[in-house]
Design a protein around this nucleic acid. Sequence first.
DNA 1: TTGTATGCGTTATCAC
DNA 2: GTGATAACGCATACAA
Lengths: 339, 339
Amino acid sequence: MSVTIKDVAILANVAPSTVSRVIANNPRISEKTKVRVRQAMADLGYHPNIIARSLANKSTKAIGLVMPSSTDKVFQNPFFPEIIRGISGGAHEKKYSIHMSTGQEEEEIFEAVTHMVGGRLVDGIVLLYSRLDDPVQNYLKNNKFPFIVVGKPHKYEQQITYVDNDNYTASKDATEYLIKNGHQLIAFVGGDPNLVVTADRLLGYQDALKESNLPYHQEYVVHEEFLREGGKEAVNELFSLANPPTALVVTDDVMAFGVLNTLDQMGLVVPDDVSVFSFNNVLLSEISRPPLSSVDINIYRLGYEAAKNLIQKIENPDEPAKRIIIPHELIVRQSIRKK
Amino acid sequence: MSVTIKDVAILANVAPSTVSRVIANNPRISEKTKVRVRQAMADLGYHPNIIARSLANKSTKAIGLVMPSSTDKVFQNPFFPEIIRGISGGAHEKKYSIHMSTGQEEEEIFEAVTHMVGGRLVDGIVLLYSRLDDPVQNYLKNNKFPFIVVGKPHKYEQQITYVDNDNYTASKDATEYLIKNGHQLIAFVGGDPNLVVTADRLLGYQDALKESNLPYHQEYVVHEEFLREGGKEAVNELFSLANPPTALVVTDDVMAFGVLNTLDQMGLVVPDDVSVFSFNNVLLSEISRPPLSSVDINIYRLGYEAAKNLIQKIENPDEPAKRIIIPHELIVRQSIRKK
DNA sequence: TTGTATGCGTTATCAC
DNA sequence: GTGATAACGCATACAA
C-alpha cells in the first residue's frame, strides 16, 4: 500500500541510502541521480514516513501544548485560542508540528505529559500556565526536558525559560493613565490572587498610586474569578462603599465585560460615572458597549515567542535559561472619562 | 539515557519480547513474571517509546485536527475552542492524542495535511470546516484515509462520515418561536452564503414563514461576515426599509452581538423594538446586554462525537459512512419580546 | 509459558 | 558519489 524509500530506490536503480541522501539534499550526491531519484519519488507519490524518521533521528519535530486543568472554563477566555494561534505560527515557521495534551483533571494532565515526554512524542513542551508547585513543571525540570512557560514561574525563576509581559509596568501604566485623567479613587479588580499575573498587576497598581501620592485603600482591592459572573460581586462590593471609586483597573477583559453589565444594571454609566481599564485587548473589548480601554499584551506574540524560543532551546540544549518579555501597549477606547 | 524494553528485560531476567507482552498484558504470561517485569519497569522508570511502537504497529493512536484557513479570524469565534474541547474529550476517552495542523493559507494547510497523512503521523483526521470542492477533502477521499467532517459535506454526502446539527429544523424552530410570539416581519441575517450551514438555516427560516402563511421578502435576507462589524451593515440595510422587521434570526452569536451594538446606536431597544434569535449559545450570548436568545447547537458534543466516530471508523475501516446529528435546543433569554 | 528472529521505514557509519 | 549494513525501540510469527 504505502510506498517506502526502498520502492523509490528500486525504481531509480539506486540504494535506499542514496534515496535518503537525496531527501536530505546531501551535497555529495550528483545532480543527475538527484534528478532521477526525485522523479521516481514523484512517480510513486512517495512521502517520507515521519514516524520512522523520528525513531532513527530521536527527534520528532513536534512540540507539546499543555493547558491548565479545567480547560472547560479556561477555554471560554479568548486568551487561549489566541496564544495557540501564536504558538502555531512560531512552530510552523520552524517546521515543527503541535501535539495537544488532552485531559481535564490535574492528574490526567500529568499523565498526558508523561505520555508525551516519556513516549518521546515531542521534543519540547509549552506550558500555558504557571502554578505554584506544579508537578508537571517539576517533572520536566527533573528530567531536564526542554520546556518553556507562558507567564512567570513561581520558583526557580532563574533556571526556567519563560515568556511574559512586564505585568507590573503594564498595570502601573494603566493606573497612571487613569490618574493623569483626573481619577483619584481607583479600585483594582483582580483575578485569582494566587496567580503571579494578578500579584504583578496589583503591585503595579499600588506603586502607581504611591508615586502619585494617592492613598492606598485595602477595600479598593477585590478579587474575583476570571469569568462571566466574575465582575458582579466585585462591583457590588466596591459600589456599596462610602466613597465608591470613579475608576476601575480590571485584570481581564472578560471580567471587565461582566463589570460593564453590572454597572449598567446599577444604573451607572461608563465612562460618565465610572471609568474602566482592563487587560488583554481581546476582540471582546473592542466590540463591547462601550468599547473597553485595555492593555494590549500582544497575546499572539507571547505564543509566537514561546514556540520560537522553545525550539531554539530544543536545538541548542545547553543554552542558559532565558526570560522573554513581550511589550505591551495601552489601547484607549471610550470606557474612560478623560480630563 | 533513556531506558528501553531491553534494559527492563535484562533486569527482570527475561527476553525483550516477554516485556513487550507484559506491557500489552498478554494473558499467556504468568502472573509471576508479570509481577517481576513490572517491578523492573518501575525500578528503571521505564516508559514505552510511542514512536517505536507506532512504527511497529503502523498506528499512532493520534488524530489530526484541521482548521479552516485564515485561522486568525476564525479563532475569534468561540465556536472553535469549544469544539476542540469536545474533540479533546472524545479522543481522551479512547486514549488517542491530538495533533494540530499549523498553517494559515490554504496551501499551507494542504501541505500540513499531506505531512500528517503521508507522514503517517495520525490515524485519522477531523475537518473543522466544510467547503465547496475542498482539495483537502478530495485528497483524503482519494487516499481512502479515515476522516470525519464537522458540518455537512457539499458533495458525496452519502460517502462521507460527518457530524452536524439539523440546521434546517433548528432555524425553523427558532423562526416559529418568533412567529408564535406575534412576530410577522422577521428578517434573516446569515453568514457566508456559500456555507452549507447558512443555506440550511435560510431554508428553515423560509419554510417556517411559508407554513405560517407569512410572506417571504427577498429584502429581509442579508448576508454578512461572521465577525464583529458583521452585524452593522446588515442592520443598516434592514432598518432603512419601508417596513423594517420586528424580529431577527441571526446565524451566529458573535454577529448577533454586533447587531445588538448597532441597534443600540440606532436607538432601537432590544427586545422592545426588535427581537433577536441567534445561534450557537456561546458564553457571549449569555453575558451580552440583553442576554441573547440562542439556539444551543451543543458544540462540545459536536466535537466529542466527531472524535468518537472518527476513532470508531479508524478501528473499523470498512464501516459504511455515517451521519451523526446532534440535537439542538432553543435557549430563550431576554432578547425576545413575547406575546 | 517464554525465547528467537524478523520487520516496521528511516538515518548514519562505514566501506568502496 | 554510492552502496551495504547496522542501528532506532518495539511487536509478533514462529519455535521451543
